[in-house]
Design a protein around this nucleic acid. Structure first.
Lengths: 225, 225
DNA sequence: TCTGGTTTGTGATAACTCTCACAAGCGCAT
DNA sequence: ATGCGCTTGTGAGAGTTATCACAAACCAGA
């Protein structure tokens, strides 16, 4: 099982286990956790937890469970969170500002070290202690500060152009909040977070259940008549 | 093919096609689009586009492609976006504020009609033209305004409690931005958007490629020596 | 009407992911 | 030492998703 590449689906869940383990480590003095318990904290089933963790290695003890601290360390290491990753945010509108001061990033070892925009009326201002730089200076600053992650929070029309500039500056990991598809070279990793897409998916299922309920009610009226 | 339930994976892509189609409709005067072109705009492959669309029905014409307007309408209808869904945001911190003024929501038929918080020092303030109400009034306001979607943008510790209040108020669709797992009854739909989890996933792949490059370089140095 | 070029719709298959169920292994009590 | 209860690790099978590849269908032009 070891040495096999870790499935994408598993990678996507490791951060959830990590968070649950951090909660456990802070909480009561227990040193161990069972797959059952971890599963319930993570909102998945126990078999999945065990299989996921088995891809990292055999870190549990049968009859006992997993040592919380040890597992924490292993997941942290596997996710590459033992080093910290300087990140830049491009686009300092409402969303960019919120991201710049988002606690969750720094808590996980992601330091936002630079903010960029093209709007001269805000370039130079400070947000959360960081000055807003002009996008033209991106390449130099990325090199100087060893920035490895780019976060796009621009309007959709600028997203592709910004992505290209980030790639040109040497960034290999991009998190895209703009509601637009960005195409980049295959050795660059792009993940997207699309706020309104998630709502649209909810809408689909909401409509569905509502339709079913309406049908049930119609049915009831018919059978009563 | 018709009448079969639409796979989740397909539902998750429909909003992406929708966005691409909207761009097309605004752009040049073309009335048709091929699966190939739509695929490239959506960043997926053509076969997937065709299979996805075939779940909705046979809306294309062989040798020609898909009529943009017609397809737009069908996807809009399927996603339940012909009606608009009043939504409430709970938690008016940085993120909540950014979401409240996020253009992407209203553009897709999601109206934010209420904001809630528990902090008395901000309750009563206005954000984007909407007053911040106290969470205690949630149930009444949800009922009055027919709110069907709840957006959680609170700190993680409050997320579960807020989710329960939303459910108690009759909300069946929840979008959770708090970095915490929320458990609700199975007839309630929860989707989560976790900003830092996405970064952690990027970190995993970034570390991976970096490790490969380091190994390659070491190899090169060895073979040169 | 027929022919050629184009594009859809979809069976078939491959790849991936989830779930089940149980043997293997551990610790504790006796 | 031995047995019992508990929990992991994982093979096997089910379910879901992605990809391939091609027949069916359409349009335009002759």
């Amino acid at each position: 099982m070891r040495n096999r590449p870790i499935p994408e689906a598993t990678v996507a869940r490791l951060p959830i286990y990590l968070r649950a383990l951090l909660d456990l480590a802070e909480g009561r003095g227990e040193t161990n956790v069972s797959s059952e318990e971890l599963a319930s904290l993570a909102g998945v089933n126990a078999a999945k937890v065990r299989k996921d963790l088995s891809y990292l290695g055999s870190y549990g003890t049968r009859g006992v469970g997993y040592d919380i601290e040890y597992l924490l360390y292993q997941i942290t290491r596997e996710l590459g969170l033992t080093q910290d990753w300087p990140a830049a945010i491009v686009g300092v509108g409402n969303l960019g500002r919120a991201l710049a001061s988002y606690k969750g990033f720094s808590e996980r070892g992601f330091r936002i070290t630079a903010l960029f925009d093209v709007d001269d009326s805000i370039v130079g201002q400070e947000v959360g202690g960081l000055p807003i730089r002009h996008l033209d200076d991106l390449k130099d600053i990325v090199a100087d500060e060893g920035i490895s992650i780019g976060i796009i929070a621009t309007p959709p029309a600028s997203a592709q152009e910004v992505a290209e500039k980030l790639v040109d500056a040497g960034v290999k990991s991009i998190l895209n909040f703009a509601p637009a598809v960005v195409n980049v070279a295959p050795d660059v990793n792009v993940r997207k977070v699309d706020l309104s897409i998630e709502l649209q998916i909810l809408s689909f299922y909401q409509q569905r259940t509502q339709a079913i309920q309406t049908a049930r009610e119609a049915n009831r009226r018919l059978s009563q008549a």
